[in-house]
Each structure stands twice: as C-alpha cells, then as structure tokens.
Amino acid sequence: MIRRGLALAAAALLALAPLLAPPYQVTLLLPAFAYGIALLGLNLLFGTAGLLSFGHALFVALGAYTAAGLTTRYGVLSFEAIVAAAAGLAAVVAVPVGLLCVRYVKIYFGMLTLAFGMLFYSFLYKFYALTGGDEGLRVLRPLLLGRPFAELDKVGFLTGPFYYYALALLALATLAMRRIVRSPFGLSLRAIRENADKAAFVGVSVRRYRFYAFVIAAVFGAVGGTLLAVPTGLADPLLAYWTHSGNLVFMLLLGGFEHFLGPLVGALAFIFLQDLVMSLTAYWRFVFGALLAIVVVFFPRGLLGLVAPERPA
C-alpha cells in the first residue's frame, strides 16, 4: 500500500514537472523516460528470467533508426505509426536473433547478444547509402495524435506535448510490463531463473518462455529507442555499439534489477548523475566507472536495494 502510494506520488510529481522545473531539467527527463521503457524490457530478461543481454542496444538503435527512416525517408510523421512500426520491426528482428540466443544461458547468452549488437552496429556504420553511415540519420519532429504543434518551438514542443506523450507511453509500458511480470508467464520466467531444470520438470517450456521474454524485451527496447531519438533529432550508429549496451546494464544495476521499478529509478538516476558529473568534470567516464565498480562490488542490489532490502513478489 505504501509502495503504491509512493509510486503514484512519484507519477504525479513527474506529471507536474514541466510546470515546476526549468525546461532544461524537463528535457533531461525525456531520455530518462526513453531508457526507462527500454530497461523495463532488459529487466524482464535479466531480473525476471536471469539472462543478461549485452546487446540490448541493438533494439534501442533499431527503434531510433525506425523513427529516423520513417520521418526523413518515407515522410511518415505520425508518432503512433512510428512506435507501432518500431515495435513490429523489433519483433521481426528478435525472432531469428532470439531463437539463436536463447539456446544459451549465462556468459554465452551475453556474448551472443553482444555479437548481434555489433553486427547491427557495423551494418549501420558501413552501409552508408541506407543508414547514413557514421553521420547517422536525422529524425524530424513527429506528429503527436495527428497534431503538428507547429506553433511551438523545439523546447516548447519537447517540454510540452512531447513530454506528456512520453510520460503516458512510459506509464503504459510500465503497466503492461507489470501485467507481464505478474502473469503466470512471469511466474514461469522466475521459476526458470531460479532453477531451469526444476521448471522444465514441472512442465514449463524453458526455451520457449525465454524466447518470448527476448521478443518482448526487444519490443520495449525499440519503443524506448523511438522516444530517445526525437529529442536528439538524430539516430547514429553508436546507439548500437557495445558500450551503449553496457551503459544500459549499468543503469539497470544502479536502479536495482531485483525490483520492478528498478529500471525506472536507474534510468532517472543515471541521466541526472551523468548531467551532474559532466558539468563538474570532463572525465565523467572515470567517475562512472568507479561508481559502477562500487555498485557491483558493494551494492549489487542497486539504489532500490538500499531502500527496500527484501525482494518484493
């Protein structure tokens, strides 16, 4: 009950943010929302099913490039259509990739997903005519629910309609993921994580469920990717690079992968910390590396693990 109250209070605070906070802070929330959605997917794999993907950035980049390709190449500006296309494309890509990856667990799963991520990166980087190569592709301002909001400048658009659109999408994604995690399917995934042999013995189709989790995670990753690309206005190949996947896992661990809301907390904390540290020193990677090392060694349960030590069901 308290937990739910806190979550609702946080949601209300986020809804009021554009009225209370300066525009810069509000624009910082946008990538945090985008990463939040992508991390919900990543955490279905890691926190729920026990599979650590080091190639989740593939799907984030896929979403970003879908937004870029549709707006600049095909003149599709409806953001609903973009999100739907990104989700569909991610599912299509995730089927063959997932079928291969879920045959393995642990480190082999991580390596295989990393290899696929890098495969996609080199495709984005080298096929200049199709993807813009290292310059990437521009993302034009999309229509939200069919409305262009032409009267607003860029900041006004991002901190106004687009902010609420992203927040609504995040809320939808969170609710959808909650349904998934709490369903019998989610329960089966947790059983597989704890003991795959036992799960198989009581009739859980281990590989098939892992595969479903992989595809769902991919869809969440791509939806997050579309949101990520609009504020920056650019989709570039580094989105698919392995260090980006590493950062995603970092955010998840920072928030706490054992908690359902860990991904959202991690995304928020990461973005604001990054902004803070970058404003203080040019060597923010060093600070973040040290921070990650500390989290991994001393606080593997992340920020939420500090506040709420037991594992909620």
Binding site: F46, L52, F54, K106, I107, G110, T243, G246, V249, F250, L253, R285, F286, F288, G289, A290, L291, L292, A293, V296, V297, P300
Partner: peptide
C-alpha cells in the same frame, strides 16, 4: 555470477 564479473571489467574500461 559471471554477469557481475563482466560488469566490473566494463567499469574498468570506463575508468
């Protein structure tokens, strides 16, 4: 878990 080993070495890469 190997995942944590991987992450710790990733932290080293950043540093």
């Amino acid at each position: 878990d190997e995942s944590f080993q991987l992450l710790l070495t990733f932290a080293l890469v950043l540093m």
